[in-house]
Amino acid sequence: MANNNSIKTKLIYTFIAWTISGLIFFPILWTLITSFKTEAEAISASPSLFMFDWTLENYEDVLARSPYFNHFWNSIVISIGSSILGLLIAIPAAWSMAFVQTKRTKNLLMWMLSTKMLPPVGVLIPIYLLFRDFGLLDTKVGLVIVMTLINLPIMVWMLYTYFREIPNEVLEAARMDGASIGEEILYVLLPIALPGIASTLLLNVILAWNEAFWTLILTAANAAPLTAFIASYSSPEGLFYAKLSAASAMAIVPILILGWFSQKQLVRGLSFGAVK
């Protein structure tokens, strides 16, 4: 009896969960499907989910119209470059805050996080002017710098929470065993913290990949990553649904796959260690 009942409940919950998650996922699914339709079918008043003539012509059109791979490459360089550069700066800081705590450590962390609160518009004009004067407008280097800086607080904080979980005694043991501070970090801390470092890197790649304020404002043709590439579809090409869908799919699929593979690691980092 009880067993029957619990299967019934499970069935109901499963149904609700699949329905809701299906609705949430629908816009993405719809985009993916539409990208394989012809323009006529894409705007049809009685749209079909699967029963249409699948075509790749939209992808060909998108590739022909704009240098997708340039934008793709820019996105890769900017997101991965800024994440790695950020790690190099953040790891020493996180080490020092996690293992050599002082009274100021907590305040320092709070201050770093508070720089995230600084609205980008507050510094928009100076950054724009500085970039113009230093010739950094529309360059990958410029964007790598900006992405590194805006994500640095998050990286420090994430690494800090991961490092905090490593028992101090293990590092002290290394010190007793004759390791210099450099060796201690290289041979002991980093290997132990590797999963945490990897998820920090990952989250920042995703954040930088999707960042759409500075990337839109500071780039034109040369260094524009996929966010800017896709923004150019806002009008009037936006009315060509199939092409828009194909371009969208090409912009999001790489990061979607990366995110799905790493969802477990992402949770902790995203919540700044508040949730394990």
Partner: peptide, 8 residues
Amino acid sequence: FQSYALYP
């Protein structure tokens, strides 16, 4: 050390 502090 108390926790052994082995390199995991």
